[in-house]
Design a protein around this nucleic acid. Sequence first.
DNA 1: ATTATGTCTATATAATTGGTCGGCTGTACG
DNA 2: CGTACAGCCGACCAATTATATAGACATAAT
Lengths: 144, 144
Amino acid sequence: MLSKKTKYAIKALVVLGKNVDKPPMQISKIAEEERIPKKFLEQILLDLRNAGFLYSKKGAGGGYSLNKDPKDIYLVSIMRITDGPIAMVPCASLNFYHKCDECKQETTCGIRDVFIDVRDATLKILSETSIADVIARENTLIKV
Amino acid sequence: MLSKKTKYAIKALVVLGKNVDKPPMQISKIAEEERIPKKFLEQILLDLRNAGFLYSKKGAGGGYSLNKDPKDIYLVSIMRITDGPIAMVPCASLNFYHKCDECKQETTCGIRDVFIDVRDATLKILSETSIADVIARENTLIKV
DNA sequence: ATTATGTCTATATAATTGGTCGGCTGTACG
DNA sequence: CGTACAGCCGACCAATTATATAGACATAAT
């Protein structure tokens, strides 16, 4: 399961992706629109900012805006910041690898072998889908 | 991430899958071979038994054996017993669906739309891979 | 100065996960 | 029969993680 943190992160980026070329948007406004607890969202946006995805401005008239083109923000990058590994077993993770405690022979583990395939399938989608794509999908869904 | 419960379940089924046509195998033996805490494994095997995957026999000479052909035990079924949903968001789950708390319009949610694709990709692999396949993969890995 | 807004650290609470304990039930076998 | 074996079952517990909340601080606009 995706953590709420990740889901909120994506939702916030989608909102900000619809807000490009407009003045920065406040945490409280995003929180209200997307029904996200404000203080929790605050932390999440801070993480995304520190990772370089967001620009922030303090003080009156301040807020958040995207620091990149929505086309260049892929779901996989967001998830790695907020949730960590994409793979379902640590031994199949590319960016967060670590050995399974009980595993005797990783190289011949059939479970790992299967879950590497699962990881690749998941990764393909998540690394090809950007915030711009998510927005595009929503627009398509609305029209139909 | 897969829970340890699920990982242990698959490991146990693989061991039992290699043990067909032999006398039933004791929990303690499986636990020892796969380095799984015995009492925890006990719970897991009970779940699998109650779900119809295992046959058990009490008393001296008792133990567990598969109740189905290893070819007919798919990873997806095991995971649904031990971990629940396959999908990464509840609103994209086939067997454990529930609405996201904060979601305003599910039908036009771009996140859900993407994660339905992810679910389908994952599901394809997990519902095509059986315990027999996992064993076969291990044999292939050993040979290479 | 005052108000609006993000930054940062710490803390609280709840849920889940991973694991343990001890007694009960049924079976084999001498 | 009785005893040892092995699974069954319910309760419990500790650690971690997820989800939030609080409050003091920094900075910008007016």
